[in-house]
Computed example of a mutant assay.
Amino acid sequence: MKCKINRNAAKVLKEMLATGEAEGKMIRVAIDYMHGDHAHYKIVLDTATEHDEIVHTEKGIAVLLDSREEFLDGVWIQYFYVPQEEFIITNPSKSPHVHNH
């Protein structure tokens, strides 16, 4: 499975991982819900389960992806500061739709 992270997202995710709440946990990209031919994604702190693949990104952050979910393979996590601070998670290989998180 593949996962890309932009520089801003890497900074914010590293800050999330540095909190007490994140102790012993990793970043997980999960499907929030499916809508027609595309998925909406969310980011949560979680621990690995038997169906997870740990994807090591080029930004040095390991991300948990459920290997049973084809819509997670190829996700791209971006973080933008303008027009508002938010994560935008897309999967260019599965859908042209953008989901703001």
Rank of each mutant, 00 (worst) to 15 (best):
L65I: 15
E53R: 11
E86I: 11
H101T: 13
M16W: 15
A48I: 11
T49L: 00
E15P: 00
K94W: 13
G74A: 10
I61L: 09
G24L: 09
A18K: 11
T49N: 05
H101Y: 08
I89D: 01
M16T: 01
E50Q: 10
E70P: 15
L17R: 01
V55H: 05
S67I: 02
R68K: 14
I88V: 15
M34P: 01
Y79T: 03
N91I: 04
K25I: 06
C3D: 00
E58R: 12
K42T: 11
T90R: 12
H101P: 00
A48F: 03
W76P: 00
E58N: 12
L65G: 03
G20S: 14
A39G: 14
T19L: 04
K59A: 15
P92T: 04
L17G: 07
E21K: 09
Q78H: 03
L17E: 01
Y79A: 06
M34L: 15
M34Q: 12
D46A: 15
D32A: 13
V63R: 01
E70S: 12
D37M: 08
L65W: 04
R68F: 05
E58C: 00
H51M: 06
Y81F: 13
A10K: 08
V82Q: 11
M26P: 00
G20H: 04
F87A: 01
G74L: 10
Y79K: 01
G20T: 11
I27W: 10
I77S: 02
K4M: 09
V82R: 12
G20F: 00
A9V: 07
K59M: 15
A18L: 08
M34I: 13
V55C: 12
A30I: 12
A48W: 04
G36F: 12
V82G: 00
M16Y: 14
A22N: 01
F87L: 03
D37T: 11
K94V: 06
N91F: 11
D46C: 02
A22E: 01
V98D: 06
I43V: 15
Y79R: 05
V44R: 05
